[in-house]
Simulated assay, not measured.
Amino acid sequence: MTGARDRVLDAYETLLIEKGVGAVTLDAVAAAANVSKGGLLYHFASKDALTEGVLQRLRERSKADADAIRSAPEGSVQYYVRTSAPGFASRSLARSYLAALRLADDSPTGRAARAALAEVDADGYAALCDDLGDPVLALLAQLIGDGLYLRTLAGTPLPPGITVEQLLQRMREIADQD
């Protein structure tokens, strides 16, 4: 069972994703989380605090994902690309990321959201670099994964006849040419 704090963060993420920053009020978040406004304010004293809570949650989820990248038995690239593909991306990380993207588009919260998103990017890149030892190859893997992740967020399937396995195989071929 999730606690009130997590329900509030879940509700805020959902409202950001579905309605955008301008339509989200503390009253709307409290109602969506099924808590009183006082209950919301107990956990987050202001909308800025609520925003920081969502961005901190994104950072925590990103750190956990970077740990998973580093410890993946199949290797960092296979894990990163596979878990970025439509149908495989972490729902919780994807939701937090998408909510942060919405915040990044808003001028009052944009700078903090863009900084959090940059940390997420750096986490993934560092994890790939740690395993691959080649910054260019790590960036290529990250860009492929990020493109697949964008498809996940947009609900866009891979083109017919192209599979994640084919992408990974081609990446292995490129890496072996060095």
Rank of each mutant, 00 (worst) to 15 (best):
L55F: 10
D106S: 14
R91I: 07
P73V: 02
A4K: 10
I69V: 15
G75Y: 05
A64Q: 13
I174P: 03
A112E: 11
D121K: 07
A49K: 12
D131T: 14
A116C: 05
L15S: 00
D48F: 00
K19N: 08
D65Q: 11
G124C: 00
D123V: 06
L128R: 10
A33S: 05
L139Y: 08
R61H: 13
A122G: 11
L50C: 07
A118K: 11
K47D: 05
R5M: 13
G145R: 00
A4E: 13
A138I: 09
R91V: 14
S76N: 03
G147N: 06
A154P: 01
T163L: 08
Q177N: 08
P157Y: 08
L143Y: 09
Y149L: 13
A116I: 12
R111S: 12
G124F: 00
A68I: 01
R170A: 15
D131C: 10
Q177C: 03
D131G: 12
D67T: 09
P160E: 15
D48S: 13
G38L: 02
A30C: 06
R91W: 05
L139W: 07
Q166W: 02
S84C: 09
A28E: 07
V29W: 08
R91D: 12
R7F: 08
A113P: 03
D48T: 12
I162R: 13
A45C: 00
S84D: 00
L150G: 13
L93I: 09
A127W: 02
S90A: 09
D48L: 08
K19R: 15
P73Q: 07
D65C: 06
V164Y: 07
Q169V: 06
S36M: 09
R5G: 04
A104E: 03
R57C: 03
A4V: 02
K47I: 02
L148A: 05
S71E: 14
S107Q: 13
D146P: 00
L26W: 06
Y79W: 14
T83E: 11
M171C: 05
D131S: 15
G3E: 04
R5A: 15
L55A: 12
Q142L: 15
